[in-house]
Design a protein around this nucleic acid. Structure first.
Lengths: 213, 213
DNA sequence: TTTACTTTTAACAGAATTGTTAAAATACTA
DNA sequence: TAGTATTTTAACAATTCTGTTAAAAGTAAA
């Protein structure tokens, strides 16, 4: 009964399922593989979770439940320096993504859009907090960028998510091992924080890009 | 025999397979669904492509074959203005990604890393052209950024890929329809071109971010 | 028209997978 | 220790899916 770690059987199953679903996706996952990984009997999976579908939904919903709040952690408080807010967000987001596969969510949503659509009501309010916040920053002239806040949203999330999600391909492209890539990425949050802050701070001045020096 | 459009049966099958594999992944794809979509008989799939595995590999390899050259289109010619080069790359890359799902490649590589690993030799040379190019730009003082060229690589690719790959989730988060999201994204290449060029041009000056105004 | 190639039909074998069940074994708790 | 809950074992039903086959129908071209 997992005496050493005192992990309940249900927890052990969920951990295994999470891993297998993340790696193989719903369609590629096998109940046998999950039970093997959890070091329990396959029949026990059904004893706890009835069907594969139900087990998957539990995993998916929990992942979504952890993920969605990250999309709306932008309180409208203009007192706190936005640069710090942004930096904090980037670090939180990247830390989260290291342990929770965003690719998993995306893949399953594309397979079955209802997975997200059915949760519309639950998460919709609060979702555009980010856009509102940056709109206000611009209104109040606290940042000088004139870029549509929705682009800023897309840019920040892309910079945070993709490097982790696409690690395999990036490490291949850069011709370094996955381990080396991980090490490289420790400096990454700092880099993009600076990049974003700088480009939000200063309004684009000259549109011409003709001179090389 | 597809007289109107003069598409060969093989081509029709490949188109259908591409679509189904992109949507469902290898494990979720059904031979029946592919043949239905191609408006031919299921037995005919096997007549042309023997097995599902072989058909998939054909699709995957073709996708990779179209994709990989995009990663290494950085000739070392320093005469041409790098800003133009970068802008051209961004537009080419985004245009490509609109029709060719990068998510498809990524998902299948994670499912079965050998898919990429086995192609090592074929694509490796030329892969770090980008990094070399930006290293030279820095050496020659043509750009003033002091950021590791590998970060620049990751940043550019993330900004190009993720907004297209994650369209469903972004349109959900921004509370606009997928159609409206697509429209919004027409202005996107311009935005990130400017952002990147600006931040590469000007070296980060002040590290302090204490003042709000 | 003959010949070769393409496509459909329909049926089937084999394998893999999910989910069920019942009985036995084990562990936990009062 | 007795009783309860958990876990294993092993077998099985039902389904789904892939891949095969053989025969017939259709098409194109010589």
């Amino acid at each position: 009964m997992n005496t050493e770690t005192s992990i309940s059987t249900e927890e052990a199953i969920l951990m295994a399922a999470r891993k297998v679903f993340e790696l193989k996706g719903f369609d590629g996952a096998r109940m046998q593989e999950i039970s093997d990984r959890a070091r329990i009997n396959r029949a026990l999976l059904h004893y706890y979770f009835r069907t594969k579908e139900k087990m998957f939904e539990r995993i998916f919903d929990e992942a979504l439940e952890r993920f969605m709040p990250l999309l709306s952690t932008w309180d409208q408080d203009l007192e706190e320096c936005w640069e710090w807010k942004l930096k904090r967000f980037i670090i939180t987001f990247i830390t989260f993504l290291k342990t929770n596969s965003m690719l998993f969510l995306l893949r399953e949503i594309i397979r079955k859009p209802e997975l997200l659509a059915s949760k519309t009501k639950k998460y919709r309010k609060g979702l555009n907090k980010f856009v509102l916040y940056f709109d206000r920053l611009k209104q109040e002239r606290l940042i000088r960028s004139d870029v549509d806040s929705r682009y800023i949203y897309v840019i920040i999330h892309s910079l945070c998510s993709f490097p982790l999600m696409n690690g395999i391909v990036f490490s291949y492209s850069l011709r370094i091992s996955p381990k080396e890539y991980d090490e490289l990425m420790t400096g990454y949050p700092e880099i993009i924080s600076d990049l974003l802050i700088q480009s939000l701070k200063y309004q684009k001045t000259e549109k011409s890009i003709n001179e090389n020096e």
